[in-house]
């Protein structure tokens, strides 16, 4: 079921030129037409390509970068070496057609690009697990994914590829495609309902970095009095999506923990100030 007949032209986006060039070289070796290797989404010349995009980029990064590409009609395969589960689900919700960890061997990238070309989506075992776990944690009620979609995801979880999954469940190509698009559609709906807002995420990111209420207020240009309100709202969403956490958890702890889970520490590009220049290159 992998689309070997007509291989699409691929654009590789990675802020590390060495990594991007490495992937491009391997793809060319496998017979893919690599249209461009660029280091930022803004450099994209021709819209509508198949794009393999890293999630940590200068300028637009993460879900933002993926959204930018999708607006330009690209089919995007997200990749990252350090993305957290919540971040991966975010980029899927925004419309990435699949996620491949950077550590994956090249045949996985090839299969992923083939699947996106022929089926519109690529589901790895780990992504299937993330989506299923998300569905269990954040049920959408009657309009949630059905029995067939769950069976599909469970089969993917075991490491089968798209063809094997469709065959083992006995789905026609059309039924399988529609199951996949329903999975994507519901994953997006789930995120839309249970995600913290951008401002809440900014606040989570700041408290996770250890800033005090006063500093947080100053950086977000809000008054100190409104910080507890934000924290309370974050806590409510956190509890709704983490049934195992006791309700007595303090709003600050909830915000910190969630920031760590979602990788929100780095969402606004602000990492804790670790001064690399103070490291000496000598022996120690």
């Amino acid at each position: 079921m992998t689309g070997q007949r007509r291989r699409p032209a691929v654009v590789v986006i990675d802020d590390h030129p060495v990594t991007g060039a490495g992937l491009a070289a391997q793809l060319s070796q496998q017979g893919f037409d690599v249209a461009a290797v660029i280091t930022a989404v803004e450099e994209l010349a021709a819209p509508g390509d198949m794009v393999v995009c890293d999630l940590r980029l200068p300028g637009r990064s993460g879900p933002d970068a993926i959204g930018f590409l999708i607006e330009r009609g690209c089919r995007v395969l997200a990749t990252s070496g350090v993305a957290m589960p919540e971040e991966i689900l975010d980029v899927i919700a925004i419309g990435a057609r699949g996620f491949v960890p950077k550590t994956a061997p090249i045949p996985v990238f090839i299969r992923a690009i083939g699947d996106v070309a022929s089926l519109s989506y690529f589901v790895s075992a780990e992504l299937a697990h993330l989506i299923l776990a998300d569905a269990e944690l954040r049920p959408l009620g009657p309009c949630d994914i059905g029995r067939v979609e769950r069976a599909v995801l469970r089969q993917f979880e075991q490491g089968d590829d798209a063809g094997e999954v469709a065959a083992s469940i006995g789905l026609s190509r059309d039924a399988f495609s529609s199951a996949l698009s329903s999975i994507w559609d519901r994953a997006a709906a789930r995120r839309a309902r249970f995600r913290p807002s951008p401002r809440e995420r900014q606040l989570m990111s700041l408290v996770a970095q250890g800033y005090t209420h006063k500093e947080v207020a100053a950086r977000m240009s809000i008054t100190v009095m409104t910080v507890p309100g934000y924290l309370k709202s974050v806590k409510e969403k956190y509890l709704a999506t983490h049934p195992d956490v006791p309700g007595s958890v303090s709003p600050l702890t909830a915000a910190r923990k969630w920031a760590e889970e979602t990788g929100a520490r780095s969402i606004d590009g602000e990492w804790p100030d670790v001064d690399i220049s103070s490291f000496t290159a000598g022996t120690r």
Partner: peptide, 28 residues
Amino acid sequence: HEPGGQVAVPDRDADLARERDLAFHEIH
């Protein structure tokens, strides 16, 4: 002095120092 301020500052410094130390070992 400030909400969660003075009392927490040594903790933050200690955390940063620990992370820096860890990062040094990993990189070096």
